[in-house]
Amino acid sequence: MRPDFYRTLLSPWPWLVLTVGAVMPLLLPNYYLHILTVTLIYAALASAWNIVGGIAGQISLAHSLFVGAGAMLSSALLVKLGVNMWLGMLAAAAVSAVIGALVSFIDYRFRLGHLSFALITLAFAEMAEIYVIGTDFLGGASGLFLPRDTGDITQFQFGGGRGAYWVMLGMTALCILVNLAILTSPLGYNLRSMRDNENAAQAIGVGLLRNKTLAMTISAVLTSIIGTIYARYLTFADPYLLASPVLTIEIVLFATVGGLGSAIGPALGAFLLAPVGEILRGQLGDKLPGLHYFIYGLVVIGVILASPGGVWSFIKSLGRRRS
C-alpha cells in the first residue's frame, strides 16, 4: 500500500463527510431518508463495480447476477429453509465469488476483447434472471417476501429506515475504501496496466488470470453483500429489480458519469443521479407520463457533455486550475 492510502485515510475530509452522513437520519424526513438510503445502495454498487469496470477496464454487465445471488439466495435460504440471513449472506457471497472467478477464467481462457467480455457477461446476467424467475426455491417470478424487520441484529435486521441507512453508509464507505486500497496497491497497478494494454502487461510479467480473478472476486463478493442488504431493506426480494440486467446498466451509468477508475467517482455519480431520478419522478410523475425520464435523460447528457471524463476528474481539474 502506498502512502497515498494512509494520507487519504488520515485526512479530515472523509471523516467529516462520514460524520455528516451519519447524522442525516436524525435530520431528514422519512421519504428523503429513503432516497438517501437507495442512493447509498447505488453508490456502493457503483463502487464495487468500478473495481472490475473502472480500474481493470472490463465492462462487466454480469453484476446483476451478483446482486441477484446476494438478494435472492440469502432470502430463499431464510424464507424456505430458515437459515439465518447472516449465513445466507456469506453463502451467497461465496457463490458469487465462484461465479465471478468462473467468468474471469472464461475471459482469460478465450482472451475475450472488451466488447466480447461485455456481451458474454450480459448473457450470464440474462441467464441468471431467467433461472431465478423459473426456480421455485428462489421465489420464481413472485419473488420472496421477508419477515418484518424488528431490529434483531442477530437475524440480519437493522430496525428499518435509520438502521438500514447506517448499515449502507458503512458499506458504501467500505466499498470506496477497498477501491482506494486497490488503487494504491500492486494489484491496482496490475489492473491498470491490463486495462491500458493487456499484451504489454503480460509481457512485463503481470499475471492476467490471477489479477482478473482477484478483481472480479472482490467485486462480486461486495456486490453480493450489498444485494443481501438491499433485499433486507426492501423486505421484498423482487427478481425483476434485483436480478435484472437493467440494474447493471444503472450501475454502469452512475460509475461512468462519476468517473471510471477513481475511488470516489462512481459513488459521486450515484449521489448526483440517483436522487435526481427519484425526485424528478416524485415531482413530475403526475404530469405527462414519461416526462421525468425525458428530463432525467437531458440531465445525464448535460453532465456527460460538461465532464466527459467523469464528474470527479472535472472537479479535480477545477481544483488544479485554482491552485
Binding site: L241, R281, G285
Partner: peptide
C-alpha cells in the same frame, strides 16, 4: 387526488407510497 407514477417498477411503487404518505 394526488397522483404518482411508479413507472411499472415495484420498488418505485414503495418509494412513491412513502412520499405520498409522509410528504
Amino acid at each position: 387526488l394526488v397522483m404518482a407514477d411508479d413507472t411499472s417498477q415495484p420498488a418505485r411503487t414503495a418509494t412513491e407510497a412513502r412520499r405520498l404518505i409522509t410528504e
